[in-house]
């Protein structure tokens, strides 16, 4: 069963000065599946994915990625391993161009010393546009500021960025928050298209319809524990709402 798991979480604990936010969470995430993570406010969903994305470190337990034990000390470690995270409050800098945003921290360089070097701006522009086309997002120019884009377009750029860097796992923490209906549809479309590309997705949302709409498996959390873990076809919205 765990043979085809890309991520294995075992007995994960996290405390925030007195608050036991994760109380021994164990979870297998299979390669290529779309996992829906649901739970009430404060259930520990963000804490779990913050640990998976290297933003925070667990106080106990272990994580294996592709069969090997890993410890992500910072977001870069997770990104290098192939885990990309898209947050509810955007992982984009509004005052910077699309091309620059695409490559923050991973700029292609023409030459460098001690890690600082001259960016290959032509390559950045070209690859940015290609990456956007790949997710079917047609924007005028890679030089447009991200601040000029709509919320849905921004999430589209974030997803294009994750794809461009060949991420194996994409975590989306409430990516449709504060989006208009049409924009939400677009983002849900992106998530569904990940499957065809063989990318594992972890999708967090408070909207249970969205989760059932675009995932294969539902994991429900309550008060820092996993309280339900079933395939979509084996459960129902009522059952999920019941355990929350």
């Amino acid at each position: 069963m765990s043979g085809d798991a890309i991520i294995e979480v075992r007995d994960l604990h996290k405390w925030y000065s007195g608050v036991h936010a994760l109380k021994g969470v164990s979870l297998d995430i299979r390669r290529g599946e779309a996992l829906g993570l649901v739970g009430d406010n404060g259930a520990g969903k963000s804490t779990l994915i913050n640990i998976l994305s290297g933003t925070q470190q667990p106080d106990g337990g272990s994580i294996s990625f592709e069969g090997r034990k890993v410890q992500f000390g910072n977001p870069r470690d997770a990104m290098d391993a192939g885990i990309e995270t898209i947050y509810q409050y955007n992982s984009m800098v509004p005052t910077m161009s699309i091309a620059r945003n695409m490559f923050i921290g991973r700029e292609p360089l023409k030459a460098s010393i001690f890690g600082v070097g001259v960016m290959d701006r032509r390559r950045m522009a070209e690859e940015a546009m290609q990456a956007l086309r790949d997710v079917d997002l047609h924007l005028r120019s890679p030089d447009a500021l991200v601040g000029e884009l709509s919320g849905g377009q921004r999430q589209g750029v974030a997803i294009a960025r994750a794809m461009h860097f060949k991420s194996k796992v994409m975590i989306l923490d409430e990516p449709t928050n504060h989006l208009a209906v049409k924009e939400t549809e677009k983002v849900l479309g992106f998530i569904k298209s990940l499957k065809a590309m063989g990318i594992t997705a972890i999708f967090i949302s408070h909207n249970i319809h969205h989760v059932f709409d675009c995932t294969d498996r539902i994991v429900a959390m309550a008060l820092g524990e996993v309280v339900l873990d079933k395939r979509v076809e084996d459960t129902s919205m009522d059952e999920v709402l019941d355990v929350l």
């Binding site: 994305s53 977001p75 990104m79 984009m92 800098v93 509004p94 620059r100 700029e107």
Partner: peptide, 20 residues
């Protein structure tokens, strides 16, 4: 790339941090 990081850090700190 350093310039890019400066702008990102000043432009929106959480995004810069989440990008490592």
């Amino acid at each position: 790339n350093f310039g890019n990081w400066v702008r990102a850090t000043g432009g929106f700190l959480p995004a810069a941090q989440s990008m490592g």
